[in-house]
Structure formats: C-alpha cells, structure tokens
Amino acid sequence: MNDNALITLSNIEKVFHTDEVETHALADIQLTINAGEYLAISGPSGCGKSTLLSVLGLLDTPTNGDYVLNKQQVANLKASERAHIRNKEVGFIFQSFNLISDLTVEENVALPLTYRDDYSSKEVVEAVKKALAKVDMLHRASHFPSQLSGGQQQRVAVARAIAGNPSIILADEPTGNLDSKNAEAVMSLLDSLHSEGATICMVTHDPRSAQRSERLVEILDGKIIADNPIKRGMHAA
C-alpha cells in the first residue's frame, strides 16, 4: 500500500435499483489519491463521475468494494459515522454553490464547524475569518448569498469547504455555473489552495479546467478508462 495514499478505492461498484431496473453506475473502480494531489475526473454525462464523487465524499455508499480514507475503512459505515467523517475530512464545492440562502456568508462558512465538537465558539469565528480572508470575501461576511454575484458565492463555497481544514476538497463542476472571468478566478483559487498543500479532486466537463490539475481520470459507463498525469505543455494550452 502507498504510504502517501489519502484515499484508496478498490473494486468499487455502485448499483442503483429503480423499480425493476438495475443500473450499474460504477464498476470495478480502482483509484488511489495521494495527499496533496490535484486530480480531475472527467467523462460524458451519465458516465458515473458524480456518483464516484458521492462515494468519495461519503454521501453515498458503494454496493461493493473497499474504500480507505486516511487509513480508515469507510465503505460500510453507518450514516451517522459517515456524517462525522464527511464533516471532518471532506470539503465540498458544488456546481450550483449550494449556499443556504437564509444564512449570512459567515454563517454559511461556519455551518459545518457548528456540527463539530472540537471547535469552540471562538475557534469557529477565527476559522471563518481565516477562510473568508483566503478567498477575499471577508468584507462581505454579513451579506446574504442573494446579495453576491455567482463568482462571489462560489468563493464563499470554497471558504466553507476549507474552513474546517479537511483532508480533501471535492469539487463538482465548480465553474459550471460561472462566466469565464469568474470561472478563472475560482480555478485560480483552487490552484492556490493546491499550492498550499490541499488535496483536491474535481469533477469537470471542461477540458481547460481539467488541464489545470495534475492528473486526469477519465470515466466511461461507470469504469475508469484512463488515469494519466497532466503534461505541463497541455496546461499552457
């Protein structure tokens, strides 16, 4: 086993049962993500990349296979245990930002920390400030999401994802709802986080976004069909 491995997926399968239809969303997934790695998952619509991200983020359980996160077997945990690990180890960035409209920016960022026992009120405030400062949104701390632009909302979502110092940031099409200017700003932010040592796993359709990562995993029909490092030259393109 790779000592630097943060995540190891072995023989992962995910089958959905709807009425009498059985859909194999993931099949025989073998994947290792090392600490500090910046990984992109790509593939056509319906190929299973979002399902894979759900499994990685402990939002869903695999039907079969092993999942080791931070040296802990997490494939068959109870919902409450998964929620606990998800809260501590995973930071999510969604395509549609998924901020809670009736919480202010700072409350949105603080939200995952309020579910933890190891943060005092003071520590929560400090962590929120730090995360907002990192995404340059401290000046908007008391605003509500509806008062922000799409790019700003996604920056807040990034701040929420990093506030609790998670082991990995999972980003699902983080620029999918943004214009090119805001998309570039968000991608720069992810680059910056990565350069500071964050492990990032990003699902994306966008080849340009994918090229900013270090490694590209391609999926088709629920199977990994390619897993290659990104060449520097392609990044420049």
Partner: peptide, 16 residues
Amino acid sequence: AKETAIRVALGAPRAR
C-alpha cells in the same frame, strides 16, 4: 429539501 441536503453533505448529524 435542498437546504437539508446541503446540511447533510456538510456532515450535519441527524439529531441536529
């Protein structure tokens, strides 16, 4: 429902 789903994704315990 979506707000609840976000909370769940962020690791909210069921009791909370």
